[in-house]
Amino acid sequence: MTDTENLLEVRGLKVYFDIKGGILKRTVGVVQAVDGIDLDIKHGEILGLVGESGCGKTTAGRAILRLLEPTAGVVRYNGQNIYEVRHAEMKPYRARMQIVFQDPYSSLDPRSKVGDIVGEGLRVHGVTDRNERQQRVLEALRMVGLQEHHMRRFPHEFSGGQRQRIGIARALVLNPKFIVCDEPVSALDVSIQSQVLNLLKDLQQSLNLTLLFIAHDMSVVEHLCNRVAVMYLGKIVEVAEREELFSNPQHPYTQALMSAIPVANPKIKKDRIILQGDPPSPLNPPPGCRFHTRCLEAVDICSQEEPELIDLGNNHLCACHLRQPDTVS
């Protein structure tokens, strides 16, 4: 792995939230939403980030875009640590890095027309000429399959899928290099999901985009991503190429996730791994490996020592005491 290969490098990213309480609003607890993750995102790839809800993947996505200030860590975009850039000078990075949200209903200002929603980014980034702005908004809308007359409409006049297209157009209009897609289809009807996924894939290819695709649905990830990172309770537990991960999942948590993917053939019998209990609270994560409280294979060391994310070979990284390079099955 060389630096030039990676568009984005995340190192030791931590995002903690203070819980205030008591009489004097003292900090009574810390939510360790993202607790030290390392991630490389290569030029032109689609990296999937999967995990249960509440595992910190959305927080990680937003911290990577500096929509949240991290507690610690580094995010390098083309080698530049964006957390060191002064707020006033963030603008150029904003144009390069964009986001598509999960909920197409809350992500569009109900009081702005579509044209203004999509054109806002252009306005901010110095496209002062109205005609030019309109032209580029139109281009972006066409790219996502919308028409010129849609510019003058309000968001509530559109269906969920159409709204999500508007959200994508808003992200695209500044010609970004990198887009965080925060579960962009999970709020949509299943029939619409594939359309939007296909659209994203097409756009990624034609515009040579790099995507961080956050999802909790393994089948969506399998359909779309080049590489997949699995997150559990604020930590990355496994990263691998798609084929590698799906054919050869290593981490017990990943294996449990895989076994939950429904197969569209009732004859195939599967050994489903049913995890017991709920994920522990990020307020008070368990010591050692965070998964040991629910892990079927857990041994003593798991509750004492935190496993490192190590390369098992074949660019397959896994954080488990029981999966060392020599033990790979």
Binding site: K91, Q98, I99, Q102, S106, S107, D109, E120, V124
Partner: peptide, 26 residues
């Protein structure tokens, strides 16, 4: 906390404009 406000921040819109043009009308 609405996503459309986050979207504005992702676009680099100035906070004052976010407050008065985006948040206040809503």
């Amino acid at each position: 906390e609405e996503d459309y406000v986050t979207a504005d921040r992702a676009l680099g819109v100035r906070p004052v404009r976010i407050l008065f043009r985006r948040i206040m009308p809503n």
